[in-house]
Amino acid sequence: MAVVAEPTRNRRRRRSGPHARREARIGLLFVLPCFLLFLAFRFGPAVAGVLMSFTDYTLTGGGSFIGADNFTRLKDDPLFWDALKVTVVYTVLAVPGTIAVSVGLALLTRRAFRGSKVFRSVFFLPVVTSLVLAATVFVWIFSTGGPWSTAMGWIGLPEESWLSHDTLVVPALALVGIWSRFGYGMLILLARMQDIPRELEEAALTDGAGPWQRFRYIVLPQLRPALFFLAVIETTASFQVFDAVYTMTGGGPANSSYTLVFQLYDAGFKYFDLGYAAAIGVALFALTLVVALIQRLTIGKED
C-alpha cells in the first residue's frame, strides 16, 4: 500500500482557545514597537508623499490642493517619458544581468572547496562598498584611455568613453549596477542551493544527465522562489537607480542617462517643486508595483 505523505500545510492546524489567544496578544505586543516605527517612518511619509502629489507644495510650505494637475503635467512632460524610457532600458539590462551573474557565481561557489569562502567574501565585497566611491573609480575606468576603452580598442571597437556616448552610457551604468548588486543575489541563491537535496542531482547524474540538464531540470526549478524574490528586489533597485548616475554622468550626455529618480531629485531638491517631485514618486511606485505583479504572475506563480 502506497503511503502518501500529507502536504506540510495540512499538517499545521490552527490552534484556538484562551492560551493561543493570549500568545497571539503577546506576539502582537512584541510586534507593536516595530509596527509603530514602521507607521511613523515608512507608512506615514509614504502617505504624506501621495497627498503631497496633489498639491503645489514648495519650500515655503502650505501648498494648496491642485487636484491631479501634477499628474497631468507629468503626462505632458517629454522629460518624464524620456526618463521612463532610460529607466526601463537600464532595468532590462541590469536585472537579467545581475541575476545571470549571481546564478553563475552561486553555481561556481556552492560546493565547498579550498578557498571557496574567500571567493564568496570577495564576490560580496562590492555590495558593502560605497557605490559613490566605486562610481568615481568607474568614471576613470570608462574614460577615454581608461582600461575599459583600451580593452575595447583591443577587440577592434572605438576607444571612446562609453560615458560620453548616448547609446552606450546606459549599458555602462548597467554594468556598474550589476557589479554592485551581484554579490547580494549570489548570497540569496547560495542559501537556496544549499537546501537542494544532493540526492536529486546524484540520481540525475546516475541517469546520465549532463551539467546543463541537471541545472535546467533540477537546480533551476528549485531556485524559482529565490529567483522571484531576486527579480522583485533587483527590479525595485533598478527603478530607483540614482547614485551611480549622479556620480558618473549627471544624467548625460544630453539626458541619455537621465532616470526617473534623477528627475525626482531635480524637481524636489534642485527646483524645490516638491508637489511635482512627489507625483513622480507616485508614478514610480505604481510602475514598480505593476512590474512586481507581472513578475508574481510569471516567475512566482507557484509560490
Partner: peptide, 10 residues
C-alpha cells in the same frame, strides 16, 4: 578634452 563634456572626474 571630449570626456569633460560629459563627466567631471576628480
Amino acid at each position: 578634452p571630449k570626456d569633460l563634456v560629459t563627466t567631471t572626474p576628480n
